Computed example of a mutant assay.
Amino acid sequence: MARYVKISCLTAPQLRVPPETGLEDTVVRMIAFWERQLEQVLPDRPDLIVLPECCDRPEKSGYTAERMKEYYRYRGNRIRDFFARVAAERNCWIAYSAVRELEDGTFRNSTQLLDRSGSVAGIYNKNHLVEGERTNGGMLYGKDAPIFETEFGRVACAICFDLNFDDLRLRYAAQKPDLILFSSAYHGGLMQQYWAYSCRAFFAGSIYTHATSSIISPVGEVIATSTNYYHYVTRTVNLDSVVIHIDYNEAHFRKIKNKYGTKVTIHDPGLLGSVLLSSETDEFTALDIIREFGLIPLDDYWERANAHRCAPGNMEP
């Protein structure tokens, strides 16, 4: 059954607040700043808003590590609670990325996923910090790769430097998320598309304004981006989609279209050899089509190909 979700990736530069500014004034300015940013996407009524890494950290120029910690401690959960109120009032999810202090006094670089009621539905702690976040910022590395269940699908999170590490990507690929939320200060280039295709998941990345924010399909195709003029992007995607290879499946494509017409989309991004099959109806799911026509999902096809390679007599001595 079609699972449409409207996603906004909201990019913004870090707010410049001189370090000698009072902490209360800094928090007030930060909330006002994000109120202005949200005004750009809220009229489109997104189901989900993704924010960049450390979105409520002042621009660091002039800040010592200790002054930044003072800010974090004073801020507490106030800005998270501001976003939670927005989520509840506007009936949307928000991926809020920020440094947070735990009860034991240690820090994490985290994405907190706020649901439509404003509650914290899950927390992801950045697994792969850059070294300075630990040595200068006092943060600890995260160790878990959780999947969060939402009404529109299974969601994973990654933050900035995470995108460079295969161990985290492969842990997510094994769990088969529908959507990866990426909050970052760095873009990652082709790694964004590689993660999307490797995990067979849609990818929504929110990056600071020096680079574009993007929404990417499970076949690694960039389907929407922010621009140099408008630092946000909103797009509706259909999470009821399955990646399949053309081999052994293509013979059924015309039969599927003849029977179901616009109720099924088979999208070829070109050059890849794989297509994205999506159900555009409430009558059946993409997996129902897979079963009805005996199609082979991509990961099953790779396993079959490897098994055939290793079968007795098939490999050179």
Rank of each mutant, 00 (worst) to 15 (best):
residue 97 S to E: 08
residue 93 W to A: 02
residue 94 I to G: 05
residue 93 W to Q: 02
residue 87 A to N: 06
residue 108 R to H: 13
residue 92 C to H: 02
residue 91 N to C: 07
residue 130 V to W: 12
residue 130 V to N: 09
residue 95 A to K: 06
residue 108 R to E: 15
residue 117 S to Y: 06
residue 131 E to Y: 10
residue 86 V to W: 02
residue 112 Q to P: 00
residue 108 R to K: 14
residue 93 W to N: 07
residue 81 D to R: 13
residue 82 F to V: 03
residue 89 E to C: 04
residue 121 A to P: 06
residue 110 S to G: 03
residue 99 V to D: 13
residue 129 L to F: 07
residue 132 G to P: 00
residue 96 Y to P: 03
residue 107 F to A: 12
residue 116 R to T: 15
residue 127 N to R: 14
residue 109 N to C: 08
residue 101 E to P: 06
residue 105 G to M: 05
residue 90 R to D: 08
residue 126 K to S: 11
residue 118 G to F: 04
residue 129 L to N: 14
residue 97 S to L: 00
residue 105 G to N: 09
residue 100 R to V: 12
residue 101 E to R: 12
residue 111 T to Q: 12
residue 126 K to P: 03
residue 128 H to E: 12
residue 124 Y to P: 07
residue 93 W to V: 06
residue 98 A to N: 12
residue 118 G to E: 04
residue 80 R to Y: 11
residue 111 T to V: 15
residue 87 A to H: 08
residue 121 A to S: 14
residue 112 Q to A: 11
residue 78 R to N: 05
residue 112 Q to N: 06
residue 104 D to I: 06
residue 109 N to S: 14
residue 115 D to N: 15
residue 90 R to G: 00
residue 77 N to Q: 11
residue 133 E to N: 01
residue 126 K to L: 00
residue 108 R to I: 14
residue 80 R to L: 15
residue 109 N to H: 12
residue 96 Y to E: 05
residue 126 K to F: 00
residue 114 L to G: 01
residue 90 R to I: 02
residue 105 G to W: 06
residue 126 K to Q: 15
residue 120 V to E: 13
residue 123 I to V: 15
residue 110 S to V: 14
residue 132 G to I: 10
residue 118 G to L: 04
residue 115 D to S: 07
residue 82 F to N: 01
residue 78 R to L: 11
residue 91 N to P: 00
residue 130 V to E: 12
residue 90 R to W: 12
residue 115 D to A: 08
residue 118 G to D: 06
residue 127 N to D: 05
residue 116 R to H: 04
residue 94 I to E: 05
residue 119 S to T: 05
residue 100 R to L: 09
